[in-house]
């Protein structure tokens, strides 16, 4: 099957400026490659500053990539211009983390949803009917049509944002921590809606989150990011059952489990240090200063490649490949 989205060697460096001079680069995303297939959710997890959000935005060219290829439905997005870029804008959408700032406070729900539809010239017989139908599909109703965002709760706003995404009938949606600003009970609601919509319309999602539980619930396949690099990619179930990369193992042992019995039985791994700054990342494997298995002379010198250890399960670690 052809992937909807194929990212190859994506890099995004931000300049660090001091008095108009560039004194260094923040390597926010440094050589990331993955594919997303139709109807699939690809989860991207990592701690703050690992570059997962930048990856999501660079893929949509909200931030121009420094290097790399982004192939969307067979076309290289980095080369698109004019009409073709509009085509891309229509078929690839994003939903943001903060429901309080992602909707224009001066527009009614109707306008918020219809503006992109009109802009892309999508023919709609009865705009009102069309928007009501969309609102109903995300659990709102016609009473909300001509209201302003400030009249809604956080969860309801995320639903409006979702309806706006749906209106363009995209193939692919970047979900940038869509529930991390919400309470758990509301979160469950939104996650279920997202899943249902995926089943119905066959969307592909890039699901970005720092919450491993949520990523496991949502994703078919997932990638773990550390300091701008993917350290492990594979089917979500497999990664949770059998994490290969020491960082993934550390993450899994660090997440609190909402079950006292399992929590007591869980095998623990000592968590060392904090993520270093992406301005001057460690040489070699970026995880080596925190890694309990780091081998001097290898891990701190050479960068491990992403290798397929078992079927569809890739790891970038010298424990699993030869130099």
């Amino acid at each position: 099957m052809e992937p909807v989205l194929k990212v190859e060697g994506l890099r995004k460096y931000f300049p660090v400026k001091s008095l108009l001079r560039t004194i260094g680069w923040v390597k926010a995303v440094d050589g990331v490659s993955f594919e997303i297939y139709p109807g699939e959710t690809f989860g991207l997890v990592g701690e703050s500053g690992c570059g997962k959000t930048t990856t999501g935005r660079t893929i949509l060219r909200l931030i121009e990539p420094t290097e790399g290829k982004i192939v969307f439905n067979g076309k290289d997005v980095t080369q698109l211009k004019g009409r073709e870029m509009l085509w891309f804008r229509r078929h690839a959408q994003i939903m943001f983390q903060d429901p309080y700032s992602s909707l224009d406070p001066r527009q009614t729900v109707f306008n918020i949803i219809m503006e992109p539809v009109k802009f892309h010239g999508i023919e709609v017989d009865d705009p009102e009917e069309f928007v009501i139908r969309l609102l109903e599909s995300v659990g709102l109703n016609e009473m909300h049509l001509y209201r302003y965002p400030h009249e809604f709760s956080g969860g309801q706003r995320q639903r409006i944002a979702l309806a706006k995404v749906l209106a363009l009938q995209p193939d692919f949606v970047v979900l940038d921590e869509p529930t991390s600003a919400l309470d758990v009970s509301v979160q469950a609601n939104i996650l279920n809606t997202l899943k249902d919509l995926q089943k119905k319309h066959g969307f592909s999602y890039l699901f970005i989150s720092h919450d491993l539980g949520v990523v496991k619930y949502m994703s078919h396949r997932m990638g773990v990011m550390y300091l701008g690099k993917l350290v492990e990619v594979g089917p979500a179930e497999r990664i949770f059952d059998n994490p290969l990369h020491p960082y993934t193992q550390m993450l899994l042992s660090a997440i609190p489990i909402p079950d006292p019995e399992l929590a007591r039985k869980k095998k623990r791994m000592e968590v060392k240090g904090e993520p270093p700054s992406p301005i001057n990342p460690p040489s070699g494997c970026r995880f080596h200063p925190r890694c309990p298995f780091a081998k001097a002379g290898l891990c701190d010198k050479e960068e491990p490649p992403l290798v397929e250890v078992e079927k569809d399960h890739y790891v970038a670690c010298w424990l699993y490949g030869k130099a």
């Binding site: 009970s185 469950a188 539980g213 496991k216 619930y217 489990i257 909402p258 079950d259």
Partner: peptide
């Protein structure tokens, strides 16, 4: 409503 990362969850 809370997804448990160590368990298989069919539906939240």
């Amino acid at each position: 409503a809370v997804p448990n990362p160590l368990k298989k969850i069919e539906k939240l």
